[in-house]
Design a protein around this nucleic acid. Sequence first.
RNA 1: CGGGGCGUGGCGCAGUCUGGAAGCGCACCUGCUUUGGGAGCAGGGUGUCGGAGGUUCAAAUCCUCUCGCCCCGACCA
Length: 575
Amino acid sequence: MRYSSYFIPTHKEIPADAEVISHQLMLRAGMIRKLTSGIYTYLPVGLRCIRKVENIIREEMNRAGAIEVLMPAVQPAELWQESGRWEYYGRELLRFKDRHNHDMCLGPTHEEVITDLVRREIHSYKQMPINFYQIQTKFRDEIRPRFGIMRGREFIMKDAYSFDADEEGANRSYEIMYEAYKRIFQRCGLTFRAVEADSGSIGGSFSHEFMVLANTGEDQIVNCMKCSYAANLERAEVRVADEAPASESYQMEPIQEIHTPSMKTVEDVTSFLGISADQLIKTLIFVADDEVVAALVRGDYELNETKLKNVLGCQTVELAGHDLIEETTGAPVGFAGPVGLKVKVVADQSIKVMKDFVVGGNRKDFHIRNVYLNRDFKADLFGDLRVITPQDICPRCGGEIAFNRGIEVGHVFKLGEKYSRALKALYLDEQGRESTIIMGCYGIGVGRTVTAAIEQNHDKDGIIFPIPLAPFEVTVLPLQMHEQTVVESAEKIYRDLIENGIDVLLDDRDERAGVKFNDADLLGIPVRVNVGLRGLKNGKAELKIRGESETVEIPLENAAEIIVDKVKGLYDSLK
RNA sequence: CGGGGCGUGGCGCAGUCUGGAAGCGCACCUGCUUUGGGAGCAGGGUGUCGGAGGUUCAAAUCCUCUCGCCCCGACCA
């Protein structure tokens, strides 16, 4: 490609509306332009990156035996009503009516459509396993789109759906996708982790998120320093400390009500009483589905709503409003406690081993001290309810754990029969019995993978693309466009590289060297070839790798050959 | 949806409080010089001041309505 006849509108200035580095760089490098909130045009260079990711995904999905299809973006309401999501999905599902006044929506995902296809076409165990995938534009009407393409409303996604006759097959399909995803992100040259994610009612570890590690990531992940355990914060299990439960023979002080005027927070109460937060129990009032429950966690811990939901086995949990709290506890917010409460009490497992603690008094401006579990109140249910902390240990091996930030670029999920049952996707097994197909779904954010790559690989000068994602593998810079020898030598190298199948950008603009250097750096093209008078005097060109500081001279005669080797070397270094 | 902020040339912004000739930097166009890390000089043009209505002799500026965008929060995955 010749720069002068291409379209790469770069900018020196940092756009005001972009707060994360990938968004800024993508705008500055002329990769994307915003049309409206959360909706972007991919300019040629951005599109090239997108295509590189798509091609890697396509190759690996095909290798894993998945079959490519392309489903419609516009979908009829009927299917969504059938699955129950027309009601459930909320405003993120963009709905509209067609000219016949039929309810329609823009597809945020395609479980309904693919399940509809499969129920019409797949009738026998002999037709399975089968896995369909597509790379397609999705629309989710996000409340607050941000970070450019990282969290847009319209975005390109690869989604795959597996269909199996039995659990064993479904697990195998899941495993195959899990492995394919590892290969995909490896090939993209990204540093990532596959972490266990909450799978809600399905249980087990049948959901993994693929996280690209980056300090600016929106998600927190936890991983063990010793073993392979990794999970997102929502999911990460807390291992119970091996401490003896409070023994009955312990000297128990009588319960004592204390005046704590206007002390609503853990901090207020602990500093007033001169105790540490781990001697206090927080009581949080929730509405779980339709039932009011009290959740107890130690004062220094944070409650994990997902875990609460799972322990209760309910669909939704929501913190109670002020009125409900007052109605339930008889006191305003900040003074709730388990003693004398009439509602179901769920306690974090850490509370089992606590003794002599402080709780809210269920009375305005009062707390209670010297409280003991079982003597003063009982918990209906114990479980892992809290968010893991850096002081905790690995739930698998007991090793030290680390916290990292990540960007979710992929998700694999065993769906089970959720959609196949709702949409009646059935098949006949070997015995001629009718059963429900078991599904899995597997997504990759294509654009987000590009942004994650940039978040992970950049410096003050711009992007440092891993070569598999780079819009061009090599850029050739003739540094003096008015010098015929320079232009001719550069053209020769350019032609030779094209001959060798290299993605090469020839910067044939009549610009000063500095401009070309800066644009090349900004775009993040991995290999740069300088052709200038200085080197040409000795029959040399220069080779520079983006992100490395040294420039090496290479002889003009076999320049292309050396460059091709270098490109291969960059790919090989990712294996 | 709640809170906050911003809409002025292609981009980044000043001007708005206190009404009185629409400006600055970058970019862009022409010419000359320059030419290995975003050149210099000279000249040039670029505007429905987001939109509508109102107040006024006079509105980018004040008032009302409206649209769009950004940030924080709640929500969702």
